[in-house]
């Protein structure tokens, strides 16, 4: 139960960040990507703020013996640049550029009443499930 409450609160903080930053508005994301048009550099500040605090915070947190609710910190260890990483990032970039949604903002938009999210979200779940089956 405590795990669920902490998870819920973390999700709220994450979502508030998405909304306040403007990241949850596809128009703002698409203008960020439109560097030769109606460029809106706001999202650089989102990335900068997030990376700044995570860079500093991870150093402190990872000095601890283990996380509160688990035995070990699970940090990705792979260092190789494989085909899937590049291909996947390319596909993701194309989809991001078409719709203006990445996964977080898509979730925060679920109950905001736009028509587009009704098409986008299930399609995203299909794509994720497909890759999970392929990778299995």
């Amino acid at each position: 139960m405590v795990k669920a409450i902490v998870g819920f609160l973390s999700g709220i903080v994450f979502g508030l960040g998405l909304v306040l930053s403007g990241m949850s508005n596809p128009a703002k994301v698409l203008n960020f990507l439109d560097i030769f048009g109606t460029f809106d550099p706001s999202l650089i500040f989102v990335m900068a703020g997030a990376i700044l605090i995570v860079f500093a915070g991870y150093k402190l947190i990872l000095k601890r013996k283990h996380p509160v609710f688990a035995q070990v910190f699970q940090i990705p260890t792979r260092k190789d640049l494989d085909k899937n990483l590049i291909l996947g990032a390319a596909f993701f970039g194309i989809g991001w550029g078409i719709g203006g949604f990445c996964p977080g903002p898509a979730i925060s938009s679920l109950l905001l009443g736009s028509e587009g999210i009704i098409y986008f979200f299930p399609a995203m779940l299909v794509g994720l499930t497909l890759t999970k089956i392929i990778k299995a």
Binding site: G88, F91, F92, F120, G127, L128, T131, K135
Partner: peptide
């Protein structure tokens, strides 16, 4: 594209 791309 987003689901498939972030997945693989």
């Amino acid at each position: 594209c987003v689901g498939f791309g972030t997945g693989i």
